[in-house]
């Protein structure tokens, strides 16, 4: 495949998707959910971009949009510099996915061999007589013995199944792997093994990763860039070191403060955020985070803050990002509390 010299493996520009929910067949008007709104990023070969956020923030929908499992309403996706608008065989080969649940993502009545054979057959990767060797090679590559080939998924442990999921993803020489919470369904003592495997494969195959996770400590370890999503929008985006050195959006700070440090000497004194995520069907005016934001001011209710550069390679969508330099601000109880906080919840 020809490739623009310096094009990133994947580039996403102003991606947007709204889902329409019909309340009931009697009502004509439909509820509109803003699933993904104006999301842009790019990932270069060999690097990892982490997509962080809470459930329903649009991170999984973003993955489905890239994979063309869901059609975007607007926006462009470029694979190696070339626009993608439908699920071409090339897209299906170059972009692979590792799923969260290794129990649900392997077809239960397929033997491991059939699971790994499928992508090779579909993409005509190799002649039939070399198939078995190739399958064996990808099993070995993920650290399993070749004899798992004849087994069924339910005979393997969670960690082993996730390795098979990874083997399936790398077997077709992809360039981008979307890892959707690849370890959160696994036992704690297995997680590091899988993370190490992913890191090894990234290095040896020069893979780009889109790493979807809610675990900021893990993200800090595996990623090169971080994008934080809230209600369908990216609210902060930066290189990992920069991000963890000083997040510049109150939501990122709250996420960071909410992650439970495994050290009893550093107990958080109170939950950093009160309230819950606003309903995606009835977004507040202005900034959608303002209903929970400890720093919200009047302007936040009127004007939606754009995602803009606040430092080199550091984007934030907050009117007060400029003030967010010291890390105390969020936890300081004397920080200005806006009159619109807490926003009355819809009953």
């Amino acid at each position: 495949m020809k490739r623009a010299a310096d094009a990133p493996v994947i580039a996403v520009k102003n991606l947007a998707k709204r889902f329409k929910l019909r309340q009931s067949w009697l009502k004509r008007d439909k509820l509109v959910v803003r699933a993904v709104d104006d999301v842009s990023f790019e990932i270069a070969a060999g690097s990892t971009m982490a997509l962080v956020g809470e459930s329903g923030c649009g991170k999984s929908t973003t993955a489905k949009l890239i994979l063309q499992l869901v059609k975007p309403d607007s926006g462009e996706i470029y694979l190696n510099g070339e626009p993608v608008s439908e699920a071409t065989p090339q897209l299906r080969q170059k972009v692979q996915m590792v799923f969260q649940d290794p129990y649900a993502s392997l077809t239960p009545h397929f033997r491991i061999e059939s699971i790994l054979r499928e992508p090779l057959v579909v993409h005509r990767i190799c002649p039939p007589n070399e198939m078995r060797d190739r399958i064996g090679a990808s099993i070995t590559a993920v650290g399993l013995p070749v004899d798992v080939m004849s087994r069924y998924p339910h005979e393997l442990s969670g960690g082993q199944r996730q390795r098979i999921g990874i083997a399936r993803a790398i077997s077709v020489n992809p360039e981008l792997i979307i890892c959707d919470e690849p370890v959160s369904a696994l036992d704690v003592s297995i997680r590091s093994q899988i993370i190490n495997l992913l890191l090894d494969l990234q290095q040896s195959h020069n893979l780009a990763f889109l790493f979807i996770s809610h675990d900021l400590d893990l993200v800090a370890h595996v990623s090169d860039f971080v994008a934080v999503m809230y209600l369908g929008k990216i609210v902060e985006q930066a290189a990992t070191e920069k991000f963890f050195a000083g997040p510049r959006h109150p939501y990122s700070r709250a996420l960071l403060a909410s992650s439970l440090v495994p050290d009893p000497k550093k107990r958080i004194q109170f939950a950093p955020l009160s309230g819950e995520v606003a309903s995606p069907t009835e977004l507040p005016t202005g900034c959608s985070f303002r209903t929970r934001c400890p720093l919200a001011i009047d302007k936040c209710a009127r004007v939606e803050p754009p995602l803009q550069a606040i430092g080199e390679g550091h984007l934030s969508a907050c009117h007060r990002a400029g003030e967010l330099v010291s890390s105390e601000m969020l936890t300081d109880p004397s920080a200005p509390q806006s009159a619109i906080n807490p926003q009355p919840e819809r009953i």
């Binding site: 994979l67 692979q96 649900a104 993502s105 077809t107 499928e118 992508p119 579909v122």
Partner: peptide, 11 residues
């Protein structure tokens, strides 16, 4: 999910 997974590998 296993159907979605098969779809993403191109089935």
């Amino acid at each position: 999910e296993f159907v979605e997974a098969a779809r993403t590998v191109g089935a």
